[in-house]
């Protein structure tokens, strides 16, 4: 039976030797109002779809049938059918949504409203705002714990990570970090929270249990002035042993040992590297480079850049679909 299915597939697509489902990296182009779709096998842009104004944060639903896009200047979160590029509907998002995170329930979006000092919680099914939570000035980074119980908003001008109890939608802690926090991520086991500080030039690691600071990651690249090393987006490796931290105008991604908080390598990227996404097999990392308008493909095993892919103007967010 299995053999028969394989034979059928082969006869159906006799001219395509590549895997039937190549992975895709979806990149928002902040100044072009588009998303670019990169094929992870050919490393080419295969499609470009129009979006609302100033698309930034981007993420897929768990089944990859829906793409959520923060259209910041349209003051909405758009829901796109990734098969057709059609905008299915808009979600109420509060003003100027910049980044968001989809809860593990695959249903609730936690959205940072940059101009309003608010975090908005939206139910993607009922398309209703569930809650709005006052946070610090210029909320930006959003994270949610693997068990869905804690949401984090970072505020760029207040220099804090705000800890939100998702059951009550109330803040239960506020932790100071260095200047201009950007991105936040929980480790896969939910025990640690990492927060990058763009101007402070550090990543602070917190213990989730008691919100105490465990340590800080510092960066230094020979020949690059200290104040150009600006950590922004980052991702943990699938095995959790490494963190890949985009350093903005330093044009490098740092590889951090998550046990020692020491940097083990710096990988050259395009200019003003922002955010990143893994390839489906996690062998490659795709970084968005805002100023050079391209995406750097990093060979993760060798920790080296292998290709630059031209996308739209000011690529910002990135999301993978297998």
């Amino acid at each position: 039976m299995r053999r028969l299915a394989a034979a059928l597939l082969l006869t159906a697509t006799p001219l395509i030797p590549a895997p039937i489902h190549a992975g895709e990296i979806w990149v928002t182009n902040e100044k072009d109002d588009t998303v670019s779709v990169i094929d992870t096998d050919t490393l080419e842009v295969i499609k470009t779809y129009p979006t609302g104004e100033r698309p930034r944060g981007v993420t897929f639903s768990k089944d990859f049938r829906r793409l959520y896009i923060c259209a910041s200047d349209s003051d909405t979160v758009q829901v796109m059918d990734p098969d057709t590029g059609e905008i299915l509907h808009d979600l109420p998002s509060g003003e100027d949504p910049e980044q968001f995170v989809l809860a593990p329930d695959d249903r609730h979006l936690y959205i940072a409203n940059e101009d309003d000092a608010i975090t908005t919680v939206v139910d993607t099914q009922s398309r209703q705002v569930v809650a709005q939570i006052d946070v610090g000035v210029e909320p930006e980074g959003m994270a949610i714990s693997p068990d869905g119980k804690i949401a984090i908003t970072t505020s760029e001008t207040t220099n804090m990570a705000h800890w939100i109890d998702t059951a009550t939608h109330k803040l239960f802690a506020n932790t100071l970090v260095d200047s201009r926090p950007r991105h936040a991520e929980f480790t896969a086991d939910g025990s640690q929270l990492w927060v990058s500080a763009e101007i402070g030039g550090t990543v602070t690691v917190f213990s989730v249990a008691d919100q105490q600071e465990l340590g800080k990651v510092h960066f230094a690249i020979a020949g690059v002035n200290d104040d150009l090393i600006q950590p922004v987006g980052f991702k943990f490796s699938p095995d959790g042993k490494r963190a890949f931290v985009a350093l903005g105008p330093a044009n490098h991604v740092a590889v951090v040992d998550t046990a020692s908080y020491e940097v083990t390598n710096y990988i050259l990227t395009g200019r003003r590297v922002w955010h990143m996404a893994w390839s489906p097999d996690q062998s490659q990392l795709f970084t968005t480079n805002g100023v050079s308008g391209d995406v750097t493909v990093i060979d993760v095993a060798r920790e080296t850049p292998v290709k630059s892919i031209k996308v739209g103007r000011f690529p910002w967010g990135a999301a993978m679909r297998p």
Binding site: D134, M160, L171, F172, A173, N174, T175, L176, Q211, E213
Partner: peptide, 11 residues
């Protein structure tokens, strides 16, 4: 106003 005072951890 609008939010109750909430001391920052460890400060």
């Amino acid at each position: 106003t609008g939010i109750g005072l909430m001391p920052v951890q460890g400060l």
